[in-house]
Design a protein around this nucleic acid. Structure first.
Lengths: 167, 167
DNA sequence: TATTGTTATACTCTATAACTATA
DNA sequence: TATAGTTATAGAGTATAACAATA
């Protein structure tokens, strides 16, 4: 459990990180020029568009791995642009609920095809259908594993003694 | 060539981006706390450690997809920390050659195991040996494809008419 | 007493444009 | 005239800590 990575793993790791880094740069360039959005902002819209309910600030912050204050800032910017709306939570008055607006959905729908085209040109054109399937399976597994840990918002709070570190 | 992504591709794309994003955050946290390095700085050291020769500033900037001025800044910081050294290129006096120092190599060697351990815990523990192999093959293919494009340093210069876009 | 979210603030990162020096 | 690199500068992004309101 504490040994080195095999050379094969090291090769894979660096290829993965480098590929995604390059892809991210291109995607960011596209989003900025096409929709005047940062990647984080796109991610926030994507999450809100996909969610079937309003999300709290903390949920949203954890979703994109951002500090709560960082999210406050981004939510302000998105609100200013008319893409999201923040309202008080009627059930828990401490919470703020975030909802994507019609304009936000339009914006998201407007940039998604081009975004997806970038991913297609850079990533999927190099992959077979089987590759895509197995890559999706792998990354879903990996993501779920990573998500099964204390979220970021818990770290900046006073840490309560975790019962089990790995659960 | 200009159609939509299949749902399977969309699922794969988001799982990939989210996984790597989570991984990057953890890796950055480790590097910062363990070695007082940013991820970019780690990447620079990794490139220099792996290169069998000194690299020019432009080569290094392209390698990590950073503007030339951005690299100047990072190279200054790394130089200040004694991890790299910049010297004039005797062959082309316009160029600056960057070399990793002994201290830089030590630092890199010091953080690599922990870095790799993070990758192991978050990524590789979820993958079979076959997964790793095929992920590596995919990402190598993807990276090489992405690298076969005009580098970032060319974009901020006056664009010369490219003879062949893909070469 | 713990949690949600915001504010104030400071810092890091990165890029654009202007500039110098060299080819 | 084009390229390598640096500088000056400005903008965006993020986090920490302190705070207010609510549970």
């Amino acid at each position: 459990m504490a040994d080195k990575l095999e050379p094969e793993q090291l090769r894979t790791y660096f290829a993965l990180m480098e590929s995604v880094s390059l892809l991210q740069h291109e995607v960011e360039r596209h989003l900025r020029s096409e929709g005047d959005l940062s990647y984080v902002q796109f991610q926030l819209l994507a999450r809100l568009a996909g969610a079937q309910r309003k999300l709290t600030m903390t949920e949203l912050a954890d979703g994109v791995v951002l500090s709560r204050s960082g999210l406050t800032h981004q939510a302000f910017l998105l609100g200013q642009a008319g893409l999201v709306e923040r309202t008080a939570d009627p059930d828990d008055h401490r919470s703020t609920l975030v909802e994507i607006t019609e304009a936000g959905l339009s914006k998201f729908a407007a940039v998604l095809p081009g975004h997806v085209q970038v991913a297609k040109d850079l990533l999927f054109d190099q992959l077979t259908q089987d590759d895509v399937k197995s890559l999706g399976d792998m990354m879903t597994r990996v993501r779920d594993h990573m998500r099964a840990r204390p979220p970021r918002s818990a770290a900046t709070r006073k840490r309560r003694t975790p019962k089990a570190l790995e659960n």
